[in-house]
């Protein structure tokens, strides 16, 4: 797995979309892969929450025949926490503040998720 490319994608999201404050990538079972989070956030716990949240959302889309799960968003009074499925094996967490540009977030996230998916599944040579 190319860590530099992954870090580039994660930082790119935070820099391109106004209001994205933190991002994290984890395996579908909640095992943290990478975190670009502020010091106040505990990324392991966040990854576990995201895995649980996406699991429930996936069951919901299945039970209601809504197709393959793309993601789920929790809105709070001071921002939002979005969890996106990255293929079947991984997930991505995106945290935004109150001003997050939701349109831009959703437009930017789909291609980013695809790229992250291919970074995660690429068989990199040893030592990279």
């Amino acid at each position: 797995m190319d860590h530099t490319a992954l870090a580039f994608e994660m930082r790119g999201l935070r820099e391109q979309v106004a209001g994205i404050t933190d991002t994290a990538i984890a395996a579908a079972d909640g095992l943290l892969i990478a975190a670009d989070t502020a010091s106040g956030i505990e990324p392991e716990g966040l990854a576990a929450l995201a895995a649980a949240g996406l699991g429930l959302a996936r069951r919901t889309t299945e039970a209601t025949a809504r197709g393959a799960l793309r993601g789920t968003v929790a809105y709070g009074s001071q921002g939002c926490a979005a969890f996106f499925a990255v293929g079947d094996t991984a997930l991505m967490v995106v945290l935004g503040d109150e001003g997050v540009d939701a349109d831009r977030l959703h437009r930017t996230i789909r291609p980013a998720i695809d790229r992250i998916g291919s970074i995660l599944t690429a068989k990199a040579p040893e030592g990279v």
Binding site: H3, T4, L6, A7, F8, M10, R11, D29, L31, L32, I33, A34, A35, D36, T37, P43, E44
Partner: peptide, 19 residues
């Protein structure tokens, strides 16, 4: 150096056996 933290720095001893 990207500020992205990879948990590889802190070996997740308790989690690794699952893989």
């Amino acid at each position: 150096a990207p500020p992205v933290r990879m948990p590889a720095r802190v070996p997740p001893e308790s989690l690794r056996p699952r893989t």
